[in-house]
Design a protein around this nucleic acid. Structure first.
Lengths: 126, 126
DNA sequence: ACAATAAGATTACACGCGTAAACAATCCAT
DNA sequence: ATGGATTGTTTACGCGTGTAATCTTATTGT
C-alpha cells in the first residue's frame, strides 16, 4: 500500500516548489531551483524523473508543455520525515526531542506563543 | 576542525549503546545489538570500524580486549541531527516543525508540562 | 609449542543519491 | 518540410551505507 515513498533531500527541494505552486513546468522548476542552488538543468531533470518513477509527482501534457503536480502532499511528507527522524535519533521520545530543539534553536515570540497555545489545547483534549 | 562527522542510522545504534554505558567491549556491543536487530556480528564489526575511521569512537586495548569509548557526544550528535533535519525538511522553521510534531505525536502529561515550563523560561530570558 | 578460537582489518557488493552527459523526441520558425 | 531549440529519457559514475564474507593476527587451552 503506497510502499513508503522515500523523497531524498534534493528531490525534496523540487517537491517544495510544487507544494508552493502547482502545477509548474519543468522550465519553471529549473529556473527557480537555479536561483537557490548550483544544480545544472540536467541534474534537476533527473530529480523530476526520479520523482515521477516514485510516483511522488505526476504530469499533464498540455500541448507542448508538461505540467507537474505533486501526488505526495507536504503533510504526508512532513509526517513521514518526522517519524523517521524521531525514531532514528530519539528512539521515539518526542518530549526529549522537542526539549532539545527548544534548547538549541532560536524561537520568535510569536513562535513561542503559538506553541504554548498548542500545548494548552493538547492538554485539554489531547 | 572536526569536519562534521556524519553518523549513519546503523552507526547511531552503536553510538547509543556507548552513550548509555562506556566503555563497552566489541563482544558486549555485538550481544546487545543482536537483541535489538538481526545484524550479523560481522556487520556490527563493520560499523565499529567505520566509527573508528570517522573518529566518532576510540578504543583502549587492555590486554586481550578492546574497550570502546565514544568521542562524539550524544549532545553533539543530537544537535547536528536536529540542524540538518530542520533545514532539510522545514527550511529552518522551528515553529512549524514543533507544531507539526505536537499535532501528530502523542505526548504524555508530563512531557507537556515540561515543555510548557521550557517555553515559559524561554519567553522570559530567551 | 601448536592448534583452535576470538577479535580486528580488509575486501566485496548492491542500492540510493548527487551529479550530469548523451541521446531521443517534439515542436516552432523559416 | 527541415533544422534548431526545447524538453523528456537513458545511461553513467563515485560515494555512503547496509550487509557480510574472508583474511589476518593475537590469545588461550592442551
Amino acid at each position: 500500500m503506497s510502499e513508503h515513498i522515500r523523497i531524498s533531500e534534493a528531490e525534496g527541494a523540487v517537491m517544495k516548489l510544487l507544494w508552493e505552486k502547482e502545477p509548474l513546468s519543468a522550465g519553471e522548476i529549473i529556473e527557480r531551483l537555479q536561483h537557490q542552488t548550483d544544480w545544472s538543468d540536467q541534474t534537476i531533470k533527473t530529480f523530476l524523473n526520479r520523482l515521477l518513477n516514485k510516483e511522488a509527482i505526476r504530469f499533464e501534457k498540455t500541448g507542448r508543455t508538461y505540467l507537474y503536480y505533486p501526488i505526495v502532499t507536504r503533510d504526508q511528507y512532513m509526517k513521514a520525515e518526522n517519524r523517521s527522524f524521531l525514531n532514528r535519533v530519539y528512539d521515539g521520545a518526542v518530549g526529549l526531542m522537542c526539549a532539545k530543539f527548544l534548547e538549541d534553536e532560536k524561537l520568535s515570540e510569536s513562535d513561542i506563543e503559538q506553541l504554548q497555545q498548542l500545548l494548552d489545547k493538547k492538554r485539554k483534549d489531547g
